[in-house]
Each structure stands twice: as C-alpha cells, then as structure tokens.
Design a binder for these strands. Structure first.
Length: 432
RNA sequence: GUGACCGUAGCUCAGCCGGUCAGAGCACCAGGUUGUGGCCCUGGGGGUCGGGGGUUCGAAUCCCCUCGGUCACCCCA
C-alpha cells in the first residue's frame, strides 16, 4: 500500500470507535448535567486569532502550528479551543444570552510536534469554558468538573496541581523580579531558559532541567507578589475545592504554555500515562477577550485529551460497553430465500427497529452460521426453498442452541416477544 | 526540533555471524458435516521482509539515506 495516515495521525477503527463514542457520550452527559451547551467552531481559524490568543512567544505559536495560506488569508488548523470559543462568543454577541455562558466542545486539534505515546499531531480534546464570571466559584466549578469527569470513569491517583499567576497588576511585577533574579545567573541557565529570560521568563519556572531547578529554588515566588485581591481570589478557589473534598497540591512553578492564563492555572496528571502525563488542565483567562479586541469578558475553563483519557482507561482495565448484538441473522440458501432475506431484513429493520443481518456474499449455511456466531446474533432464521414454500422455518437461539419451527408471518412478533423476555430476565428492574 | 531504540503476512512475533530465509501462532476463507455456529481436524488465500540506494556472485540478514513508530528531552491534551 502506497498511502498511509500522515505522521502523527491515526485512524480510529470500528472497535476503537466504539470506545471513543462511549467516552464522548459520557463526557457530554456530565457536562450537560452541569448546564453546559455544546459549541462547534471551524477547525480552520485565522492565524492571527491564535497568535494573539495563545501568545506570540508560546511554543504552540512559534513552532507547533499547521499554518496554510490561501490568497491573502493566513490560516491555521486550530491548536486549541479557548481562543476560538472566545472568538465565537464575541462574534455572535453571546453575552446577550445571559450573564454567564457555559460552553463545551469535543473535537480535533492540531499541533506539529514530534509524535509519541499520548501526543499526536491530530489529537482530540474535550473542554468547557465558563464565560462572564470572574467569581472564584467559577474557577472551582471548572476544576471540579474536570476532576468529576475523570473520576466518573473510575480513574484514581489523579494529581491536581494548582497555582495562581496573578493578574495584570502583579504579573508584570513578578515578571520583573524574576528577570532581575535570573539575569545575573543567565550563564548558568539552560539554553531554552536563557532564551525565555527576556521574552517569557515565567516559562522558566516549569523547566525540568536539573540545573534550572537548582536555580529556581532561590527564585522569587509568584505567591509573594500577588495583590491582596489576587491572593484572596486564589484562597477562595482553594476553599471551594476543599469544600468538595477535592485534594490538590499548590505548585508555585506551574505556569502552562498558554499566555492567556491569569489567576488560577491547574493541571491534572495521572501515573497511568508515562511522559505525556497530563490528562487535562486549564485556568482563568480574564484578559483574553480584550486581547482579541472584544469587550472585557472574564473566563475560566479546562481541556482534556481524549487519546490520553482512552490510554488511561485502557491501562486501568476500564470495562467498555460491548458492541450491540444483532437480534436476528437470516441464513438464507438459494436465490429465492436470499431475495426473501433481503426484503424482510430491510422491512423489519425499518418497521420494528430490529437489528437484522444476512449474508451478502452467497456463502454456505455453515459459513453463515459461523458469521452469525461471530457477530453474536441472538437468533438465526434458517431459510431454504423448502421453508419458503411452506411458510415455516426453524428459528435457532444461538445462546442456548434450541430451535423451534415458526410461521414466517408471525416471526417478527415472536422474535420481539422473545427478545423482550430475555431482556427482562437479564435486568428485572429496567434501569440505566 | 534533538537523542536513543525499533520497522518481517491484518495482529503478535521467529528467522538476521549474507547462500532451501520467506516462516509460526492468531485472524480470515473453504472443506471435513449433499442444510445447522461456538471445540477439533485438513487445506487455502495473503508478504515490494517500511521505502530507496550501495557492498557482494548472492542481502530480510552488512552500510548509507529516507519514511514511520516507540521512549526520553522539549512541550502539553
């Protein structure tokens, strides 16, 4: 085969697609339970939106974007969703639909990184944004929601780290203090940290370089630079988390690679993942709306990686739902019977919503039964010319192997009754 | 983007000090059972040995390049 998926992208084959759908449906259910409404935005956005939103000096913008040109337009495949959601919010004046807007999304994102486990060039995120509230309650709500989703799937040992990055008043002060501290030490910093010293000094904080970390030990802490209001905001977020019993760690070095964050930033990691261990993260981005030229709008949100969630669930031995079992397989022999199967499969699917299958390849009876067994059909109708002319055919229950001769006219009714009976025996009290 | 390791049927892998080395298990298809599944038995289809170039009488096996994957860095979902 000459063609294959492009680097860092994957096909999601039927078996796996089933898992994806399950996870997506659960996430939607939980988010909608909390009053979030879905938003879908284009995958293509203006490069400028992302550059301004995420930050000109960030790694995402400087080296990870899939950019393309089309005439005058400079476009990118979206690398994240907060800026696009904010763009849509401002563009469509969603602030007229209520003081606080709660939106969620699930979809593909693109970053041109070197692929590895849990890091693809096309990956998928679910996420939510709370727009229009600067209340620390909203920060806590976002964190609790994200944790709630992960815990819903039974994930344990989650590590939640939080930090406050201050606001437009304290952040610049801290930034200067950090530069003042590191400038004399610049020689000893790692090359990438040295590069960041002037452009984006906060990013030095989450360097994993051992030498950098040593120097960081003596660096000023953002916590000491927070204004009274910022400190208070952060304290309240923590208090709310405690009220829900959500354990967290304060990490003064947690920065995150998107410039729009201020006040709360958080990240959730799992030991099930390896090097790319963040299941999700987020924070507050009160300056973003103005940065995009819109009316000031506070916001807080989070995003989680679907691939990583799936990896974590698979290694945790999560029990995904089984594929639906066909109700009936019509094993037909001979042209007349095959035509009958074709007509009745289609009729019964439409009329009774029965999942009916039959052989499309003209195989032997034995093969058809094997096929019925392989796809775990509940019943098989065995139909030859003889049965057809008599109007009666054997119906075999594959689980028990028992076989009864039935009138073809009465078949759908009988089948439905037997399926209902089997279902009620399995779960006496119908519950979800 | 940097470094290391890996790349043989759909999947998991054996073969790799160059010369019946193109194989096994699983999966798939057919038959054993002239019309009855799951077990078993028999047979079959399927591979440019990731791709290209080189060394050699001869390369899956050695060398170079390239593509892809994995792991780490980086970064983050």
């Amino acid at each position: 085969m000459r063609f294959r998926t492009v680097k860092g992208t994957h096909d999601i084959l039927p078996e796996e697609a089933l898992r994806w759908r399950h996870v997506e449906e659960e996430i939607r259910r939980i988010l909608e339970l909390s009053g979030f409404a879905e938003i879908r935005t284009p995958i293509l956005e203006q490069l400028e939106l992302i550059a301004r939103g995420v930050g000109q000096t960030t790694d995402i913008v400087t080296k990870e974007m899939f950019a393309l040109e089309r005439g005058e337009d400079r476009l990118v495949l979206r690398p994240e969703m907060t800026a696009p959601v904010m763009r849509a919010y401002l563009q469509h004046g969603l602030y007229t639909q209520g003081a606080v807007m709660k939106l969620y999304y699930i979809g593909p994102m693109f970053r041109a990184e070197r692929p590895q486990r849990g890091r693809l060039r096309q990956f998928h995120q679910y996420g939510a944004e709370i727009l229009g509230s600067s209340d620390p309650l909203a920060d806590a709500e976002a964190i609790a929601l994200q944790m709630g989703i992960l815990e819903h799937f039974g994930l344990r040992q989650l590590r939640l780290r939080i930090n406050s990055l201050g606001d437009a008043t304290c952040r610049p002060r801290y930034r200067e203090a950090l530069q003042a501290y590191f400038r004399p030490l610049a020689e000893r910093l790692s090359p990438s940290s040295r590069e960041r010293l002037e452009k984006n000094p906060l990013r030095i904080l989450d360097s994993k370089d051992p030498q950098d970390q040593e120097l960081l030990a003596g660096a000023p802490r953002i916590t000491d630079f927070l204004t009274e209001a910022c400190r208070e905001h952060f304290e309240q977020v923590k208090t709310y988390l405690e009220e829900l019993g959500i354990p967290y760690e304060e990490d003064p070095f947690l920065v995150r690679g998107l410039d729009y964050y201020m006040h709360t930033a958080f990240e959730i990691t799992s030991p099930l993942l390896g090097a790319q261990d963040a299941l999700g993260g987020g924070g507050r981005y009160d300056g973003l709306a103005e940065e995009l030229g819109g009316r000031p709008t506070p916001g807080v949100g989070f995003a989680g990686g679907l691939e990583r969630l799936l990896i974590a669930l698979e290694t945790a031995g999560y029990r995904f739902p089984e594929p639906a079992r066909p109700d009936l397989y019509i094993a037909a022999l001979g042209p007349e019977a095959r035509r009958w199967a074709f007509v009745h499969a289609n009729r019964w699917r439409r009329r009774f919503s029965l999942q009916v299958e039959y052989d499309l390849a003209g195989r032997s009876l034995r093969s058809q039964l094997r096929e019925a067994d392989r796809i775990r059909a509940r019943f098989v109708l065995i139909l030859g010319e003889e049965e057809l002319s008599r109007g009666r055919a054997p119906l075999k229950a594959l689980d028990s192997g028992e076989q009864t001769l039935l009138s073809l006219d009465a078949l759908p009714d009988t089948l439905i009754a037997r399926i209902r009976r089997a279902e009620s025996e399995r779960s006496p009290t119908p519950s979800s």
